[in-house]
Design a protein around this nucleic acid. Structure first.
Lengths: 106, 106
DNA sequence: AATATACGCAACCGATTGGTTTCTCAAAAT
DNA sequence: ATTTTGAGAAACCAATCGGTTGCGTATATT
């Protein structure tokens, strides 16, 4: 079980589920209504999302509400950070280059 | 071939490759030296990364240099945007709550 | 000209994935 | 008390994945 966030968000259905429950907590049946697959398939996706802690559950009677764990989403953001730094410095380098070119023109 | 970025970054080896070539363009052999697998395995990963345009190639003699396409990386950032908005508004709501509590204390 | 190197491609293999169907169980509704 | 409903668990299946080995080819080196 290699359950990590990157593997979890690799599936388009799971990304759609994430987007859905980001707005409000939902039950498996309610989620499944938005897709043309069985509830069991959705249930499996939810298990994967729960296992990597991207989603937390709250039982209420016989219904189980699934909520997005935003803090876990931040881990993706954290990973992106190193590249964001790169593309920002590259842009500033481009800026510098343009500035240099302009000043040379004068 | 469902080659999308999210599927591409799902594999830890591919994420490592991305991090490697983010610094500088590299050949398959040079990349493979950093892992304990065969060059062919790395080559396959590079093909996947190329197919979803996360990486571009530049032939130089018999060597092929692989470079990270930062613009494509931004697409992940773009997807995260919707959730970033959520977690920021939630924090500001928390801030508001704290401010309200403080003013009530007075 | 002959050999070595860098690389992509194809065939193959076991493990994993996403999906279905069937079953069970507990909570609600009748 | 019986039936309906919400949901996880298990068994199964085809497709895909990550890896290996072997091969072909173009560029360098000798």
């Amino acid at each position: 079980m290699r359950r990590d966030i990157f593997q979890a968000i690799a599936d388009p259905t799971r990304r759609a589920i994430i987007a859905l429950i980001a707005v409000q907590a939902m039950t498996p049946n309610a989620i499944a209504e938005n897709f043309q697959t069985t509830r069991q398939a959705i249930s499996k996706h939810l298990r994967i999302l729960t296992e990597c802690e991207l989603v937390i559950t709250k039982q209420q009677g016989r219904e189980i509400y699934y909520t997005l764990e935003l803090d876990k989403m931040k881990e993706i953001d954290k990973w992106l950070e190193q590249f964001r730094q790169l593309w920002e410095t590259r842009y500033s380098q481009l800026d510098e280059l343009l500035t240099t070119l302009k000043s040379k023109k004068k």
